[in-house]
């Protein structure tokens, strides 16, 4: 059965290529551009992983990630962001993440990461 991944990013361009890069692996991809909608979707449907941007207009990515972790402690969460240059500090205080990518990232980077997280 194909894995189900939810992409949360307010940037259409990013959602567009990440969705297509992962869909070609045979996974089922959903997307949304805000945190509130994401949480609603996660309550309705089962997902294997979420890819969440850290900076969005309505709810900060950190907050979204915290709430997802509270709601679904076993959810695999991958953060993406364009704001930092290195991965030395924990991204969301108090929340362990399964993965992290800095924009700009290529399609192989996100595929490799997701394969590592979800298994082939």
């Amino acid at each position: 059965m194909g894995k189900r991944v939810l992409i949360i990013d307010d940037e259409d361009l990013v959602r567009n290529y990440v969705r297509r890069a992962l869909a070609s692996r045979g996974w089922e991809i959903s997307e949304t551009d805000n945190g509130a909608a994401a949480l609603a979707l996660l309550r309705q449907k089962d997902f294997d992983a979420v890819i969440c941007d850290l900076k969005m207009p309505d709810m900060r990515g950190e907050e979204v990630i915290k709430r997802i972790r509270d709601l679904l402690p076993a959810m695999k969460i991958i953060a993406i962001t364009g704001s930092v240059s290195n991965i030395t500090t924990p991204i969301v205080p108090g929340v362990e993440l399964e993965g992290f990518l800095i924009k700009p990232f290529g399609i192989d980077e996100i595929r490799n990461l997701m394969e590592k997280v979800l298994g082939r």
Partner: peptide, 24 residues
């Protein structure tokens, strides 16, 4: 720089990803 980086990295990520998708 801090503000600019975020603004530029998003579209740049799109350019990179879409370019690679087309390349495939």
């Amino acid at each position: 720089a801090g503000g600019l980086a975020h603004e530029i990295n998003n579209p740049l990520s799109g350019i990179l990803g879409l370019t690679q998708l087309v390349l495939e």
